[in-house]
Every structure is written in C-alpha cells, then in structure tokens.
C-alpha cells in the first residue's frame, strides 16, 4: 500500500499530477446537497415580516462579512445600523437569511431602546458560496433589505 521513496523523489511535478487527479475525483464525489433558493428566502422572510416590501437598505444596514471564508462552518457575521435607539426611534429586528444553505433562516436579532446600539455579531455556517440577506424592521414600521456575497472555500484539506 505504501511505496518507500527517498526524500528528493518528492517533487512539485509529482504533486501537481496527483493533486489534479485527486481534485477531479473529489469534485465528482461531492454530491450537491439540497439547498435554499431565492423563493425559499422570500418565503422565510414573509413569515417574519408579513407582506411588507423592503426598501433598499444598502446605505442603512452594514453587513460585516468576510469576502472569502476559509471554512464554511464558522463564518463571522456582524450587522449594524445607525439609530438613536430611543423609545421613539429604534431598530426593532434584523433578520438574516442565507440563500445557499439547506434552510434559509440564519438568525433574528431583536433590539430594544435599552440595547443602546443596533449592532450585534455571531458566527454562522455556510454550505457554499452564497448571498447573505439582511432585513431590518424599524420602530416606525419601515423595512429595509440589503445583501452581500460570501465565497466559501471548499476543497483541499481544509474544506
């Protein structure tokens, strides 16, 4: 099963050939899992915010996400919104969805005026490269939405 060799025989050429062959095999073996799509995200969103149509929140909601995640099991996720966070004006909820996971729901953060800041962070699982959608509900009933893509590294020995 093993072939004894001397150190100098381990070359980059050997590496390239075996890795190329190995990755082809791995790609074939990796069966595509069931995953969410935009319709499922819309449905999950409707369950939380009803029939409200979110306005563009690109300038309102800041999503703190890596562009490339080394491993999909632990991807940092941060949300923040500028708000006075008073009894009159505050951010109530921020819902986060992922359109390429088996299920689209990720987390709903619930803030109150006593949160002081509409900012929170956690870590999430992403099954593959996909869009993260954040929907914010304000105390005045306004709803905003934004999204960002996270590339998830799969393969090699870290995947």
């Amino acid at each position: 099963m093993t072939t004894p060799v001397t150190a100098p025989a381990i070359t980059r050429r050997h590496f390239m050939i075996t890795v190329a062959a190995g990755s082809a095999a791995a790609a074939w073996l990796a069966a595509a899992p069931a995953r969410a799509d935009k319709a499922m995200v819309d449905e999950a969103m409707k369950a939380l915010i009803g029939d409200a149509t979110p306005a563009d929140g690109a300038e309102i909601i800041r999503l703190d996400l890596p562009q490339i995640a080394e491993n999909g099991n632990t991807v940092p996720l941060g949300v923040s919104i500028d708000s006075p966070m008073t009894e009159d004006t505050y951010v109530k909820d921020v819902h986060v969805f992922a359109d390429g996971n088996p299920r689209p729901d990720v987390i709903s953060f619930h803030f109150t005026p006593k949160s002081g800041l509409a900012e929170a962070s956690t870590r999430m699982r992403l099954a593959q490269t996909q869009n993260i959608v954040a929907v914010a509900e304000m105390s005045d009933g306004k709803v905003y939405m934004t999204q960002a893509e996270v590339k998830v590294t799969i393969g090699g020995c870290g995947g």
């Binding site: 632990t74 990720v106 987390i107 949160s115 870590r123």
Partner: peptide, 26 residues
C-alpha cells in the same frame, strides 16, 4: 437587565457550534 429583556436573538441551525454572540446594552 433587571428582569427586562433588552436584547435577544432567535437562532437557527445555521448558527455555528459553540455559539458566540456580541451585542450592546445601555
């Protein structure tokens, strides 16, 4: 905070093992 919920979160299976949460309280 003194019995009143000031921050909360509903979590789904997409939250990583050993869940971490950072937030603010006034």
């Amino acid at each position: 905070y003194n019995g009143e919920t000031v921050f909360s979160a509903d979590m789904h299976p997409a939250i990583s093992a050993n869940p971490y949460m950072a937030f603010y309280v006034k």
